[in-house]
Design a protein around this nucleic acid. Sequence first.
RNA 1: GCCCCGUUCGUCUAGAGGCCCAGGACACCGCCCUCUCAAGGCGGAGAUCAUCGGUUCGAAUCCGAUACGGGGUACCA
Length: 458
Amino acid sequence: MRTALFNWLAARATGGTFLLRVEDTDQARYHPGSEMQILDSLRWLGLDWDEGPEIGGPHAPYVQSLRTDLYRLEADRLVQIGAAYWCTCTPARLEQMRAGQRAAGRPTRYDRRCLGRREEVAAEREAGAPAVLRQLIPPGRTEWVDLIRGPIAFDNAELDDQVLLKGDGFPTYHLANVVDDHAMEISHVIRAEEWIPSTPKHLSLYAAFGWQPPEFAHVPVVLGEDGQKLSKRRGARDILEYRRLGYLPSALVNAMALLGWSSGTEEEVFDLAGLAERFSLDRVNPAPAVFDVRRLDALSGLHIRRLPMAELADQLEPWLPGTSAEQREALVPLLRERITRLDEAAGLATPLLGEPVWPEDAAFPPKKVDAATAAELLDAAVREVEGGGLADTVAMRERLAAVLDQRGTKPRDGFRVLYMAILGSPQGVPVFDAMELIGPAATLARLRSARERLGNGD
RNA sequence: GCCCCGUUCGUCUAGAGGCCCAGGACACCGCCCUCUCAAGGCGGAGAUCAUCGGUUCGAAUCCGAUACGGGGUACCA
């Protein structure tokens, strides 16, 4: 998804077109539903596509399993011009061959046995033997200037004769990708660095077809805490999992962008639009980056606090089920500086929406406050609220602080009694605001209930 | 094994020969603010710029070797 983000940003930053193509050529790994999950993830992050599934476009269809005729047609061309050949070697023989090569300390590459026996291979295919089409890598050297890494060169002797068409008739990524990128007029291939060793093979295909190759930019991979490549097959969370955890999409986008890209200024908090204005491939760092969720958390809090109050109130709706828009708008000013993720709102808001939950083991009165002082404070608070003190909580707070002061208790310690009484916790949203929010009746009930817990109080 | 890419504070990074005995952010610690907790402000600690050798008056920046890390080496993408 980070790579998709860089593609999207590169397109938006340069006025280009962002095209989405589904590469589903491996039938063995096909999972129904995963395609929709990818589309939903992109949409949640705000990465809209100009051409692709569901919306179509001039290069439809955008799903490779629907384009197999094209691949076979182009594969035939490669055979005709001698850039590819059929191979009937069995998996068992290939494995044996590689084992021998490994034992001899040589690179494992197809030995081109079938290239030397075209007649027999043709006869075997005629008789129904399974066969794959292999790319014939020409001798020489392949070089390109990577947009992120500069010049990269491979000796073609290092390259394997890649399978282009599998036994089931489907193309491999190598063939389908090149054919489609040309057919869809792709100008920039921005993909992860794990593709670097495949690029000379692709370049060789472009040359065989006589096509102008696109520009290549290989972005660094993202590593997990263990230092290994984070991928859908290992370690990485499903993107939508972050939504379930209460992260804002803009925070996740921001965190992903900072994994390998920097603005060059000291600014680091951006939304998608801000990134699109500033992004450029030449500011992408080629070194792999370790994903640190603490950075995401920090950005998440920042993005939440950047949201206008009304918008945060809307965003919170799924996290505060059963609340009205008015309730949420009243809560937001108290919550927004205290949450890192949206899901944390529920815990803070609970005592304001229903009854406070006193923990079983709650110390009451809290430390540094004796029972007599706590009783006096609660009695005074009851009188204040009964006398309409909630109309001016600032003044009320000062008078109650004076009560504590007379008994030699610091307000910061003594007020914990009120936090316990109103919120059921020694910490939480500002307690006088909480009283105002729940109203005098609920406030009095909670103050009296807390007072009862103290017993006689002297 | 072989090939490729990479290597600046714990993490993400700035840095394209003198502005750097290296700047920012996160995390950590302290102080301030303060009705709690946060948020915010200020400050601190934290990197012999992987190592060695070259080039140069001068190198984190250029070159080479080594080490380490990552990626690839599939009828997966």
